[in-house]
Amino acid sequence: MTSELQPAALGGRIVRLAEKGRPQVRFRLDGLDCQALAGDTVLTAVLVCASAVRQSEFGREKRSGFCLMGACQDCWIWQEDGSRLRACSTLVAAGMQLRTVPPEIWP
């Protein structure tokens, strides 16, 4: 794994304001190495480096969560093994393999 592969090209939407001293956690997003901080939710971790968690199933727009409290279900994200998790209420863990598109249709 290369170390400094923050997919900055994707461009995140979240800005960290506090609590920046936590230990780093590595995970993969669409096959790219990313870094998060221990205690980040999957949503925070993903939106620091990317602008969305998923393509909408019903419209053209992408999804990036809405309520952050488990009520809207807007934040589901795929994992490499084909399962999905609710990004706003799941903490990121080292080695997570996340996908913004379902693994089956990934080239």
């Binding site: 727009e61 809405f66 409290m69 809207c72």
Partner: peptide, 19 residues
């Protein structure tokens, strides 16, 4: 994407320290 509930903005700040 990028439109959130007001509460979400607060939760992000309180529970994650982010905007």
């Amino acid at each position: 994407p990028g439109v959130y509930s007001l509460g979400a903005a607060q939760i992000a700040l309180k529970a994650q320290g982010v905007a």
